[in-house]
């Protein structure tokens, strides 16, 4: 059975990845899951300098999902290059790595891309985090800024593939083709959905920053819809994510046109989810008498 997929020139041994920001830099997850079982490892978002993140509370479990306001806490570019990447490379020499980058200005994104080019197989641009004051979402709502940051980053990348992560807040039909025209080589979607919770006793927003990102099963149908829209709006390879916790969920994305899928929030309740999802995909292919995962990708009958 053939499970290998290709995201542009990048070959992945299977289509199951982890979503950025839900598996750190691999050290913790590796205690529960053999990382080489993954199609690729997507690192937690990194900025030029370390970010401390938001003060607590940072997470809230809600019906069918999770709200987070982590604030992109990360170790910064230098520690990523000097400690985190070498750790992963040494243990998993054949595992493709995707660095997720974040900043507040175009110049920061460019500098990150220059530094990471060739160090990782792909760079994923995070232009849509709801949990930081500047940058973040702004880039994914302004067409000109969006196109410019993608163009600049693409120019800085000679070896690594450029993946652009799309926001669920903006129109995929509008921004997916724009990303493609600006130099994106693949798209990933969706990021968390801006959301909010209220502490009724204190009559305050639950999170100090008021808004938080919603992830988990609750957002899956929205994510599948956006993936489907993106499939019809662009020819780029798509990486689908949003609430995937079973093979069934993953297959929905694959059929709707995703070349690969990423597991995020489900890792929090069960860090072995990617293994179970991949196993379930294999079983499905077998049951359906299929020999190649490619026969499923985009095979939706509409």
């Amino acid at each position: 059975m053939r499970l290998e997929v290709r995201i542009g020139p990048l070959r992945l041994r299977n289509p199951v990845l982890v979503a950025s920001g839900t598996a750190g830099y691999g050290e913790e997850l590796s205690q529960f899951l053999e990382l080489s079982e993954l199609g690729a490892f997507v690192l937690k978002g990194v900025s030029l300098r370390p970010w401390a993140g938001n003060p607590p509370p940072r997470v809230l479990q809600v019906q069918g999902g999770l709200l987070n306001s982590i604030g992109l806490q990360n170790v910064g570019l230098r520690v990523l290059l000097e400690e985190k990447l070498p750790w992963l490379r040494k243990r998993y020499p054949r595992l493709p790595l995707v660095a997720n980058v974040l900043g507040t200005e175009v110049a920061e994104y460019r500098e990150l891309a220059q530094a990471l080019d060739g160090e990782v197989e792909a760079v994923e641009l995070n232009l849509s985090c709801p949990n930081v004051r500047r940058g973040g979402l702004a880039f994914s709502q302004d067409r000109r800024a969006f196109a410019r940051v993608i163009r600049e980053v693409r120019k800085a990348l000679r070896q690594s593939l450029l993946i652009v992560k799309l926001s669920p807040v903006s129109s995929v039909r509008e921004f997916a083709p724009l990303a493609e025209a600006s130099g994106a080589q693949a798209l990933s979607l969706i990021n968390t959905i801006p959301a909010m919770a209220v502490d009724v006793k204190r009559r305050r927003p639950y999170f100090p920053r008021v808004l938080a990102g919603l992830s988990g099963p609750a957002i899956k149908p929205i994510a599948v819809r956006m993936l489907y829209e993106a499939r019809r709006a662009t020819g780029l390879p798509l990486i689908g994510m949003g609430g995937i916790r079973s093979a069934q969920d993953a297959l929905e994305f694959l059929l709707a046109g995703a070349t690969a899928v990423a597991i995020g929030t489900a890792l929090f309740s069960d860090p072995t989810t990617p293994r179970k999802v991949l196993q379930g995909i294999k079983e499905f292919l077998k049951e359906e008498g299929l020999k190649d995962i490619g026969e499923i990708i985009g095979a939706l009958r509409v």
């Binding site: 050290e27 401390a52 993140g53 938001n54 607590p56 940072r58 997470v59 806490q73 929090f268």
Partner: peptide
């Protein structure tokens, strides 16, 4: 005690402020 979503170090949700800075 802290509110936790994963318990395994993945989500960074159960942050406590450290005396030497950061969480």
């Amino acid at each position: 005690e802290a509110y936790m979503a994963c318990g395994t170090g993945l989500c960074l949700g159960c942050a406590l402020a450290h005396r030497e800075g950061g969480f």
